[in-house]
Nucleic acid binder design. Structure first.
Length: 457
RNA sequence: GGCGCGAUAGCAAAGCGGUUAUGCACCGGAUUGCAAAUCCGUGUAGGUGGGUUCGACUCCCGCUCGCGCCUCCA
């Protein structure tokens, strides 16, 4: 029985799909004008695991993750780069896909782009206007009137009168209320625009998600996810738009992942303290980054640092070492087996991946003791639900960081052969010398019954 | 000012009203030519002050500290 922490209810709730046997999920994806940072990696990985576990639970999943390919920052960046908007966005969509693939993130069923859904957005705005929730201000923008929508604030727990609109930002005087938000921005000189009943313009940020989610998933749908920072105002506004237009509930379960931090501060583009996935993968194996993310619960803050990744790498190495020692059969999961049972209970408890990982380590210890191919197979299969341990152990253990000028496999193997010869002649001093040399180059040797194997330290 | 979250051992991070989390690091032993890996074992916890309870890291209240949202942000 799967339980999900629902941000709307502020408690864990049993997951009951709208349509039995199906799960429809929408996650707010990226605005594509720059490389993805680790915060984005967290969203990608966390909801990838959610999606995998829903499928593992036997549900027919429709997973949608949108791409915001038109907004102020994109326009600005394209202008700075002296390139077209589509050149810019297509390039970064490519990088995003590369990062996601490296992290073992499966492709969502749909990846709609905002620019492809303008008609649906206009239709939605029309409905809101008809329902008396939208108005055009003198400057040409179409705004949503938050005070006319009764439930405004229910997701974020905010009361309209407590919000300090304009305290940190100039209030747009065209709005009837400072908290009203833009549905349609009138076109300014030199900006891209679409024709509309309210004049030429482009969509406000929030409207795309309302339009794309209902178009692809219907309304209501089951799960809407995203980073915690989107809870207000973005998701609050989505609710206002979608429920204001369709007069029925928008989403049943809201999921918000916690932030990635650096030095106990939120990592964000505005603070400038972010690390890109691209950058990190030069130093660390992508699976290490994925494991690092899944070692913490998705709602907790996750502090990023190199030493934490080093730690994650050591831990993941332990799992692969266990697998290396045993030829795992590829058997279907035995859910009655105690570790599998514990794993699935952990995942059913609001996707408790740290607990799920702990069972993997217990299982690895068991594999080390028993050398059981059946248990090794269990380990592999369970880890697979987290998108982990899917590679050949040797490949993982011997993988060199992309940026390193480390010893080549051939060099390492010839040194190992030289050491074997020295050992055979009982010249241990020479053998140890070679081993020390390799260790200095980041290569650890392990003498076993079947000869010497090696891995990168 | 409003609303919300958190405080666990050297570091990271979970569950749980009473019985080993887990990983990294550390220590002792087995194994090894010596190592590495592995196994066995030990140690190190739950911010602070109260309360509830036979019993609290776990529930309740206060306090302190930290973080987040209220502005674009995953």
């Amino acid at each position: 029985m799967l339980k999900i922490y629902n941000s709307l209810a502020r408690e864990k709730q049993v997951f009951v799909p709208t349509t039995a046997g199906c799960a429809r999920m929408y996650v707010c994806g990226m605005t594509v004008y720059d490389y993805c940072h680790i915060g984005h990696a967290r969203v990608l990985v966390v909801f990838d695991v959610v999606q995998r576990w829903l499928r593992a639970s036997g549900l027919a999943v429709t997973y949608v993750r949108n791409i915001t390919d038109i907004d102020d920052k994109i326009i600005k960046r394209a202008l700075e780069n002296k390139e077209s908007i589509s050149q810019l966005t297509n390039r970064f969509i490519g990088f995003m896909n590369d990062d996601a693939a490296a992290l073992g993130v499966e492709r969502p069923d749909h990846e709609p782009r905002a620019t492809e859904y303008v008609p649906q957005m206009l239709e939605l705005i029309g409905r809101l206007e008809k329902n008396g929730l939208a108005y055009q201000s003198p400057n040409g923008d179409v705004n949503f009137s938050v005070r006319k929508f009764p439930g405004y604030g229910k997701l974020s727990g905010k009361a309209l009168d407590d919000l300090r609109a304009g305290e940190r930002v100039d209030v747009d005087t065209g709005k009837e209320d400072p908290l009203d938000f833009v549905l349609w921005k009138h076109a300014k000189e030199g900006e891209p625009f679409w024709a509309s009943p309210w004049g030429s313009g482009r969509p406000g940020w929030h409207i795309e998600c309302s339009a794309m989610s209902s178009d692809l998933l219907g309304q209501p749908f089951d799960i809407h996810g995203g980073g915690q920072d989107l809870q207000f105002p973005h998701h609050e506004n989505e609710i206002a738009q979608s429920e204001g237009a369709h007069d029925c509930r928008f989403v049943n379960y809201w999921m918000h992942n916690g932030f990635v931090r650096v030095d106990d501060e939120k990592m964000s583009k505005s603070l400038g303290n972010f690390f890109t996935i691209h950058e990190i993968l030069k130093k660390y194996d992508p699976e290490v980054l994925r494991f690092f993310i899944l070692r913490a619960h998705y709602r907790s803050p996750l502090n990023y640092s190199d030493s934490h990744l080093d730690d994650a790498r050591q831990a993941l190495t332990r799992l692969y070492v266990a697998l290396k020692a045993v030829d795992a059969d590829l058997l279907p999961i035995d859910w009655e087996e105690p570790h599998a049972c514990r794993f699935s209970q952990a995942m059913d408890d609001d996707f408790n991946t740290p607990e799920a990982c702990a069972t993997l380590f217990d299982l690895a210890a068991e594999v080390n003791r028993s050398k059981s191919p059946t248990l090794a197979s269990q380990l592999r299969a369970l880890a697979g639900f987290l998108g982990l341990l899917r590679r050949d152990p040797q490949t993982f253990l011997q993988a060199a960081p992309t940026s390193s000028g480390e010893l080549s496999v051939e060099q390492i193997e010839s040194l190992i052969a030289a050491r074997a010869a020295a050992k055979k002649g009982k010249d241990y001093a020479a053998a140890d010398q070679i081993r020390a040399e390799l260790l200095a180059a980041g290569v650890v040797l392990e003498d076993g019954a079947k000869g010497t194997s090696w891995r990168r330290a």
